[in-house]
Write a protein that binds this DNA or RNA. Structure first.
Length: 369
RNA sequence: GCGUUGUUGGUGAAGUGGUUAACACAUCGGAUUGUGGUUCCGACAUGCGUGGGUUCGAUUCCCACACAGCGCC
């Protein structure tokens, strides 16, 4: 069955809802941890669940290369393969158009995109049809359309050309899509041009997807520009479908996104930062490797309810990072993901109580310091 | 005692008669937004064992001394 979005309550544009999937019902706004290679780096499925995660994200491009989608299909699909029974969303490989296609003009064609494998340098060619075929086999709950994530800055001409091509790719992908148990999201592009965002959103919505995402953000633009991109896309999206802001983000971005009506976020930030000893706290990010934590025997945050904060001190975590012990990254991944997910829980409650803006301002007042 | 080799930052070490003494590790910071697990970027010797000398100029050449290794009585 396809996913179904159910709106529960609304506070201005901020929305609280439920997402019904084949692998359970989850609440929105939600933050989705990224598990590119069929695992959220360093964490077991039990730990992912314990942290309150709704959906996790995995990646078509990476699983295509290794182990390859047929292996996953033989295992019985992505859920069985990785032993995760919650909802999974797969990114289409569109972001790799941004990060791996070196020569945009030459590598990106109407038919598809030429890549060099980041593993062995082999030449690869990914098309909308192939991305759908791989995702159909992976059998995630939500598949993403194959798009081009446009760099920033980009000229109006290039953005227009690319945005139109992404629309044609979306249509081709949808036409070849072949898995009745899987949902498919369309992706709004249009770069930083309001006119193109509107065009992309309206044309994408016409194709009638199961959900819509806003792509092409967090690619180097300033925050003001990013929030404008969201504003200029989201007003054309239907109320009865989930909205997903791709690749975002930082705590302040979640607040700004939810305020504008975003339901879903994903970001590598909590896990990547964790591997490099950076921790989210209510008072901003801290670097646990700093010498000042050498004898700090308090938790990262005394108001955090995560496993790590309940059992370990900053001094111990610092020791693990300085000694390059993997447990540090693991414990901090738990904390950082929990931090963002707890934020979404608090935001949901604030929406229900009609005081989202107050929550946001209180949060930011502390966090900015 | 004689001969010989060596003495460069917290560590291992390059190097040159002439503007800022290489590099690595350690240390100390910073970055990270549809993954970079081992990543990226900064800072870090006012000084080359000590004291003299030669020279316009010495960490580099010379002498003495100190210390360390090796060899010989």
């Amino acid at each position: 069955m396809k996913i179904k979005y159910e709106l529960i309550s609304q506070d201005k544009k901020a929305r609280r809802g439920l997402l019904h999937t084949n692998h359970g019902t989850v609440e929105t706004p939600m933050f989705m941890p990224v598990g590119t290679l069929a695992n959220v780096k360093m964490l077991t499925p039990e730990e992912i669940k314990e942290v309150g995660s709704g959906v996790i994200l995995s990646n078509t491009y990476h699983l295509w290369l290794r182990p390859d989608e047929d292996v996953v299909a033989k295992a019985g699909g992505l859920h069985k393969f990785m032993n995760y029974d919650g909802p999974i969303l797969t990114d289409s490989g569109g972001f790799q158009v941004f990060s791996l296609a070196k020569n945009k003009k030459k590598d990106i064609t109407e038919e598809g995109v030429h890549f060099k494998s980041h593993i062995d340098g082999k030449s690869l060619f990914l098309t909308p049809e192939l991305s759908m075929e791989i995702q159909n086999k992976l059998d995630s709950d939500i598949a993403m359309s194959f798009d081009e994530c446009i760099p920033y800055p980009a000229t109006y001409e290039y953005t227009k050309e690319s945005t139109e091509r992404t629309l044609r790719w979306a249509k081709r992908g949808k036409d070849s899509f072949n898995n009745p148990n899987q949902s498919l999201f369309g992706i709004v592009q249009g770069g930083a041009y309001p006119k193109l965002r509107k065009y992309s959103a309206e044309k994408t919505v016409e194709m009638d997807f199961d959900g819509y995402s806003i792509g092409g953000t967090s690619v180097g633009e300033d925050k003001k520009t990013m929030y404008e991109m969201v504003d200029n896309a989201i007003k054309y999206l239907p109320e009865d479908k989930p909205r997903y802001l791709m690749g975002v983000g930082e705590p302040e971005d979640l607040l700004e996104g939810v305020e504008r009506g975003v339901d879903m976020f994903d970001c590598v930030l909590p896990t990547r930062l964790a591997r490099h000893a950076n921790a989210f706290t209510p008072y901003g990010k801290i670097n646990l490797k700093n010498a000042k934590y050498k004898e700090d025997f308090t938790p990262i945050s005394d108001t955090c309810d995560c496993y790590t904060c309940k059992h370990y001190t900053k001094a111990y975590l610092r020791h693990l990072f300085v000694a390059k012990e993997g447990l540090g990254g693991r414990l901090l991944s738990i904390h950082n993901i929990r931090f963002l997910i707890k934020m979404t829980e608090d935001m949901r409650n604030a929406i229900s109580e009609g005081n989202f803006i107050e929550y946001k301002e209180q949060f930011l007042e502390k966090y900015k310091n």
